[in-house]
Computed example of a mutant assay.
Amino acid sequence: MINISVVCPTYNSAKFIEATLETVVRQTRLPDELVISDDGSADDTLDVVERFLSAHAGAMPWRILRNAHRGPGATRNAGIRAATGNWIAFLDSDDLWELNKIERIGQEIADHGDANFFCHDELLVGKNGQTSTLVYGGRYNGERPLPPQLYFANMFSTSAVVCRRDLLIAHGCFDESLMSAQDYELWLRLSPFMRPVFVHDILGRYVERAGNITSSSLQRRLKNELLIARMHRHKVSAPWFLVRVGRILLSYARQFARASLA
Rank of each mutant, 00 (worst) to 15 (best):
R51M: 02
F152H: 14
D32V: 00
W187M: 14
L99T: 14
I248S: 09
L150W: 00
H234I: 06
F193E: 09
L99F: 08
N154K: 11
R144T: 11
L261V: 07
D32G: 15
H200R: 08
E208K: 14
Y140W: 15
A229Y: 08
A262P: 00
T28N: 08
N224I: 06
A160C: 15
S5R: 01
R258N: 09
V35M: 10
L186Y: 04
R258A: 13
E122H: 13
R247W: 04
D32L: 01
C163Y: 07
P31C: 04
L124K: 13
G79H: 09
L134R: 08
R51P: 01
S215I: 11
D111F: 07
T23Q: 03
D166P: 03
G172T: 03
N86G: 03
E225P: 05
G113E: 13
M179C: 09
A68C: 06
S157V: 08
K223E: 12
D166W: 10
S177L: 12
R220H: 11
Y11W: 13
I4N: 00
S37P: 09
Y136H: 15
A68K: 15
D121F: 01
E98F: 11
R51C: 09
I202R: 14
D38E: 10
D121L: 00
Q27M: 04
I202A: 14
R233C: 12
F156M: 01
N12W: 07
A55E: 15
R254A: 12
G113A: 13
V25N: 00
D44G: 10
G137S: 11
K235Y: 12
S216H: 12
A253C: 10
W87F: 11
L226H: 07
F90M: 11
V135K: 15
H232K: 06
V197I: 07
T10S: 06
T20N: 10
C163N: 05
S37A: 15
V125E: 03
Y206E: 09
S159F: 14
I64Y: 07
T10E: 02
H171L: 07
F117A: 00
I80Y: 15
S216T: 15
D166Q: 14
L242W: 13
E98L: 12
M1T: 13
G204N: 06
Y136Q: 13
V243M: 09
S260F: 04
N12M: 07
S157H: 10
R230M: 05
G204K: 03
F16K: 12
D175S: 06
V207G: 01
V35L: 08
H234L: 13
E103R: 02
L203K: 00
A83W: 02
L65E: 02
Q107S: 09
L123T: 14
D183H: 13
L249V: 13
R139Q: 12
L34F: 09
G204M: 05
C8D: 05
E18N: 11
A82K: 05
I64S: 11
A59T: 07
V245P: 10
S237T: 14
T10Q: 05
E33C: 08
V197T: 02
A181Q: 11
E176Q: 11
L186A: 04
